[in-house]
Computed example of a mutant assay.
Amino acid sequence: MAGRFASWDSYFWEPGGTVLRNLYGERDAGVLARREYRETARRWDELVTGRVRVPRTYDAEHLRAIHRHLFGNVYEWAGEYRTVGMAKGWSNFAEPSQIDQYLADAARVIHLTDWANLDRREFAAAAARTFAYVNTAHPFREGNGRASKLFMQHVAELSRWRIDYSPKVSGVSAEIWNQASMLSSPDLGSYDPVPGSLVPVFYAMTQPRERPPAPADGSDAGDGSDAGHAAGPASYPRGAGEATGQNPGS
């Protein structure tokens, strides 16, 4: 897999192209975006309702399993780490060689946090710190936002809270979400992300859970029935490949 997708252009149908290679054989960007949206919406619902379950290990493999399920019928590389550098706006995401470390740091934060006893403000801070590592890792060529949002919902199952991404509930628009995510990127020359900008965002999206916290070992994480369907697979829809570009340093 890594050999097949070893360069920026290899993810596209042709060098300099704008449409990602996909299992539909679709070469029209608009058609691909609509088909991807419909497919991931269906697969998202399977995970949220508990009809399909992924092991709650709260680590890189957990995130990869979510991505694999969401995008497995769309992209050959679903669930596989990207092999190229990527950037969005003024933020560069982790180099491919750093992805595992950032996700390991996210897992460390999760496993060292007493989620079941956090109040709303403490939960928002812990969720922001966890997500900042996951977002900086940005491990996949496409679909990072959808996979990481669902991953964070699974993390929230460990607490008395849930995350509702609906702007109607939280007031968090796509612009606010994207700006806070970009501001959480590590400072120039630094490794650790800066999650402060994300704390008020997660606070606004935090709602009480109807179910008790799940055990930390993931043995009874529930069926996702209170996960919040408003947090759909593409809360802020866009065409495949539009949001990110090649890291100029790659």
Score class of each variant (00 low, 15 high):
V31S: 14
Y58T: 08
A29D: 12
N117Q: 01
L118W: 00
A204S: 06
W77Q: 03
L32F: 09
R211E: 10
R53T: 09
H111T: 06
G249C: 12
R21A: 13
P55H: 11
D9Q: 03
L63Q: 14
F131T: 01
R160V: 04
V155K: 04
D105M: 09
A204F: 05
G228K: 09
E76N: 07
Q246F: 07
F12K: 04
Q153P: 08
G85F: 07
G143P: 12
G3F: 12
S7K: 06
G222E: 15
P233K: 04
R38F: 14
H62R: 02
E39I: 10
D45I: 12
W90L: 06
V169M: 05
I99K: 01
L158Y: 02
R4K: 11
A2E: 09
F12V: 00
A221H: 12
R146H: 02
S173T: 15
V155D: 08
P186N: 03
S10A: 02
E157T: 09
P233F: 07
P139T: 10
N178L: 10
A116M: 01
F12R: 02
G224A: 14
T136E: 12
K88S: 13
Y102M: 11
D217R: 02
L112G: 14
G228Q: 05
E142C: 09
R38S: 14
V19E: 14
A127M: 02
A87P: 02
M205T: 04
V169G: 06
S148D: 15
D9I: 00
S250A: 12
F131N: 03
A214K: 02
T130Q: 00
T130C: 06
A128V: 00
G89D: 01
P139M: 13
P186C: 01
D100F: 15
G50Q: 15
A128C: 03
V84G: 06
